[in-house]
């Protein structure tokens, strides 16, 4: 299990931020706010680009 916690990649941080961002933006979405949601989506694309470059 220890191995699972080791070596965090930058792309994983962006993906995690994206997933959590989408999750926590849901109450704002209900209120009509899209900024957190949009930033979370942007973080996702950043994660994909980083993954392509093996970061």
């Amino acid at each position: 299990m220890k191995e699972l916690m080791a070596k965090i990649k930058l792309s994983e941080i962006f993906f995690l931020a994206s997933g959590l961002g989408i999750l926590f933006s849901l109450p704002w979405l209900e209120g009509g706010g899209f900024s957190v949601w949009a930033v979370a989506k942007a973080a996702y694309f950043a994660g994909v680009i980083l993954l392509i470059f093996k970061k």
Binding site: E12, I13, F15, L16, S18, G19, L20, I22, L23, L26, L29, Y44, G47
Partner: peptide, 13 residues
């Protein structure tokens, strides 16, 4: 949206 977030978090972690 929740499921999409779960997919991303599951994949990331």
């Amino acid at each position: 949206q929740t499921i999409v977030a779960i997919i991303i978090i599951n994949g990331a972690i």
